[in-house]
Amino acid sequence: MTLLIEQTLNGIQLGLLMFLLAAGLTLVFGIMDLVNLAHGSLYMFGAYFCASFTAWTDSFVIGALLALPAALLLGVIVEVVVARKLYRRDHLDHVLATFGLILIANDLVRLVWGPDGRRIPLPAWLNQPIYLTPDLPYPTYRFAVIVVGAAVALFLYWLVTRTRTGMWIRAGASNRTMIGALGINVELLFTLVFGLGAVLAALAGLMAAPIVTVSIGMGDNILILAFVIIVIGGIGSIKGAFIAAMIVGMIDTLGRALLPDLLKTFLSVAAANTAAPALSSMMIYLLMAGVLVWRSTGLFGARG
């Protein structure tokens, strides 16, 4: 039971991190119709910005707070210089241009920060366990990630469903030509959404950085999982991205934790430990395939 509770919390934590990455991606894809393969690079830059600011200020919290406006500025620059030129072009051009941005970003990181990975030290109050029950310790930092991720998810829900800006965002996802005809500054809206997506990706990257090694290309592989999440949840849907991210996080975490013991009943220990991660990943893609067969627009995607 202790293992199940711990891994469930880990699944929630992974799901919230993936939601932060996928939410910005689904907004950019759903509103601008832009296939942004470089979204994972913004995740990487968030981690590197946090690493540098943490080293300069000797405070992880201050470093994280400084990394977010830096990521916003970077996102605005990318949108104005590159993305804005691609909106009226087809998806193949999007893929080629943003793939080029990935290569540029990786080489830029190698030039500025060097080829070696980095570790971000945590303050003492985040680097110790908290006791959920007298017999159940859980890492304080992982619990903090859950709290911050949940708070950001609630903020996004409020922003998209309860504010005028959110109304513009939802209208842009439905019919961007019409909102332009109604006098809304579409270019400014696109810059705002792209910048918001960059901040969310950077937030996911800097929160993951103390758990994993900050390294070149760290966002490339996780971007594939983010695309799977927005396909399952429905392109342009924040609610869909949240639910799909939580499902994917649970499948991946619980599968890796519980499947080895199940497989050891009829496989060797080495074979079970090797097969469990592969089966966990396979179940995620099988889920995506099943959702697409049942509902081609995703769980919460707009029909038509």
Results as ranks from 00 to 15, higher is better:
4 L>D: 13
10 N>P: 00
16 L>Q: 01
20 L>A: 02
20 L>R: 02
22 A>V: 14
25 L>C: 10
28 V>K: 02
33 D>I: 05
45 F>L: 05
48 Y>L: 00
52 S>F: 13
52 S>H: 08
64 A>C: 11
69 P>L: 04
84 R>K: 10
89 R>S: 09
90 D>K: 00
90 D>F: 04
93 D>H: 13
95 V>Y: 15
95 V>F: 15
97 A>F: 15
98 T>S: 05
102 I>Y: 12
102 I>E: 06
107 D>K: 07
107 D>H: 10
108 L>P: 05
109 V>T: 07
114 G>E: 06
115 P>M: 04
116 D>A: 09
117 G>N: 00
118 R>F: 13
119 R>G: 03
120 I>C: 04
131 Y>W: 14
135 D>I: 13
136 L>K: 03
136 L>F: 09
140 T>W: 14
143 F>D: 08
161 T>K: 03
168 W>E: 11
169 I>V: 15
170 R>P: 07
170 R>N: 11
171 A>K: 04
173 A>T: 14
181 A>E: 08
181 A>S: 12
183 G>L: 11
188 L>D: 11
191 T>L: 15
196 L>E: 10
198 A>R: 00
200 L>C: 06
201 A>C: 03
203 L>V: 05
204 A>L: 06
215 S>Q: 14
218 M>C: 06
220 D>H: 11
229 I>H: 03
231 V>D: 07
232 I>M: 03
233 G>W: 04
236 G>R: 12
242 F>N: 00
249 G>A: 04
265 T>P: 01
265 T>G: 07
265 T>W: 13
269 V>D: 14
273 N>L: 05
275 A>L: 15
282 M>T: 14
286 L>E: 08
288 M>W: 10
289 A>R: 06
290 G>S: 10
299 L>R: 04
303 R>M: 12
303 R>S: 10
